[in-house]
Design a protein around this nucleic acid. Structure first.
Length: 493
RNA sequence: GGUCCCAUCGUCUAGUGGUCUAGGAUAUCGGCCUCUCACGCCGAAGACACGGGUUCGAGUCCCGUUGGGACUGCCA
């Protein structure tokens, strides 16, 4: 059987955005699934808009996501000769022709048609130029483009899309489209097809926005006498207003980089993205890499566009809530060892990493991460909300201070007293800590909750967190005692 | 405007003529757990765009309407 070859051809005009990432993911999954090859091809034909930074951003983004390619990156600009040759060949075999119409002329015709409310197609002025006329115009050094000669007559292009089924387009609805500019550079519709032919692409998996272009590319394939690849168009990702998402209109929130910076686990993003327009019949939503490769199929791709539910002005969510929930799911369920490197990287970036966390304090670090992770949504939370566990200076939330400490005047004495009682513990273990605190509450004749919540506020600065006794054990005796004994100062400010 | 594509809870979706008084996930709300907040568990609310057909029977097939999207460039 023929080897499957798929490709991802981003144009480097901005950083990798989630729509592109999703396309890459689908292609990559299909290659993994079929044992095929995944080719990365940078379509930098539009040199004006292509930048080095952008290329780097795309490669970095894919790498971060764990989307690996087998060939490339190839650069489309390196194959301009192939494209020109193909255009030349099409002219020679009579499937394309030189068109000397100027852009101004065409613009006028377009305008005219628009005024008369007619739909405009190139009128074929140069389609039937005689060889002599062509020679004469060329002798005058008149610039020309090359247009593909679309069949004039009944019938059309018919193809079977793996997602959308049979797609038909009549020839009369397709104009003689330009395949080579007057400066000799190729247009997307040509270069993309020629590159796919050269790269022996067997399956073209791309966004539905290319569906309308596909008949043109099929005509090119056929004119060139090449075997057609299979086409699979995937639905687009829209914003909540149903607009196609774009870096320009939506900014950072649609870039892969944004999720990296906001503390997403790469696989969680992949898992979320793959669900935008694809599903299994059993409706599973969480997949390991192996499971996803196993489960993926072109048949599972949906036809309807999906909405990426950006909650831009929602203080509670910085992106689609489902993306966050999937990230949080991974954060609390993957093996702690697997999570540690991400937390470490995050803390290093924030300057709060202690090298000892990776050596003699490693097991303490791991168990502390494990203790707190179930209520975190991103790896960022470990450096912010988790600061009280990993550093000595940490903020005490105002509201918490008032409600859990200041409100109870006695805590000024009781919390330092708690410290005294804890100090005698030989082993700073959860059960022993709990015993001490509950006994003290009885002795003082207060509800344990008062002492517990007060201690939590003093030790973590937060109202919410794991069980207080676990928290104290994790923070450690020395630091707990210090924090409890500093409580009286809190009353002074 | 023309061509093509699409249409199930707010969002992601299951559903391929009867088992759909439409299932799951997420978000929302309530409860349990509890020292708090999460997690977890239990529960509530929430959708087949509309109208015609076809059929004994339609979310599922057909047509139309409406709505949305893509393409319509010497961008990719």
């Amino acid at each position: 059987m023929e080897e499957v070859r798929v490709r991802f051809p981003p144009s480097p005009t901005g950083y990798l955005h989630i729509g592109g990432a999703r396309t890459a993911i689908y292609n990559w999954l299909f290659a993994q699934k079929t044992g095929g090859k995944f080719v990365l091809r940078i379509e930098d034909t539009d040199i004006e808009r292509s930048t080095e930074d952008s290329i780097k951003g795309i490669l970095d983004g894919l790498e971060w996501l764990g989307i690996t390619w087998d060939e490339g990156p190839y650069f489309q600009s390196a194959f301009a000769n192939d494209h020109r040759r193909a255009a030349q060949k099409l002219v020679e075999i009579g499937d394309a022709y030189k068109c000397f119409c100027t852009q101004e002329e065409l613009e006028q015709k377009r305008e005219g048609a628009k005024k008369r409310k007619e739909d405009y197609h190139y009128d074929g002025t140069c389609r039937n130029l005689s060889a002599d006329e062509v020679a004469r115009l060329e002798a005058e050094a008149r610039p020309y483009v090359i247009r593909f000669k679309v069949v004039r007559g009944p019938g059309g292009v018919v193809f079977q899309d793996a997602v959308y089924g049979v797609i038909e387009k009549r020839y009369r609805d397709i104009e003689d489209f330009v395949i080579l500019r007057s400066d000799g550079s190729p247009l997307y519709v040509l270069s993309n097809a020629v590159d796919d032919i050269r790269d022996r692409i067997t399956h073209v998996i791309r966004g539905q926005d290319h569906l309308a272009n596909t008949p043109k590319q099929i005509m090119i394939y056929e004119a060139l006498g090449e075997k057609l690849p299979r086409f699979a168009h995937m639905p687009l990702t829209l914003d909540p207003q149903k607009r196609k998402i774009s870096k320009r209109a939506h900014g950072e929130v649609v870039s892969v980089q944004y999720y990296r910076e906001r503390g997403f686990l790469p696989w969680a993003l992949v898992n979320f993205l793959v669900l935008l327009g694809w599903s299994t019949s059993d409706n599973r939503e969480i997949f390991s890499k192996e499971e996803l490769i196993e489960a993926f199929s072109l048949e599972g791709i949906n036809r309807a566009n999906s909405v990426f539910d950006i909650r831009k002005d929602d203080p509670k969510f910085f992106t689609d809530p489902k993306a966050i929930s999937i990230n949080a799911h991974y954060l609390r369920t993957i093996k702690v060892e697997d999570l540690l490197p991400y937390v470490e990287a995050e803390m290093k970036a924030a300057g709060s990493w202690d090298p000892a966390f990776g050596t003699e304090k490693k097991s303490w670090f791991a168990s502390t991460v494990d203790l707190i992770r179930s209520r975190y949504h991103t790896t960022k939370d470990f450096v912010n909300l988790g600061r009280c566990y990993f550093a000595d200076d940490f903020p005490i939330e105002d509201k918490v201070l008032r409600k859990n400490i200041l409100k109870h005047e006695n805590l000024k004495l009781w919390l330092p007293l708690t410290a005294d009682r804890l100090e005698v513990l030989e082993e700073f273990r959860v059960e022993l800590i709990e015993r001490v605190i509950r006994d003290l509450a009885d002795e003082l004749d207060v509800k344990a909750g008062i002492l517990i919540n007060g201690a939590r506020a003093a030790v973590t600065g937060q109202a919410a967190g794991p069980g207080l006794f676990e928290v104290l054990a994790a923070v450690g005796k020395e630091r707990v005692l210090k924090r409890l004994r500093e409580v009286p100062k809190l009353y002074e400010e």
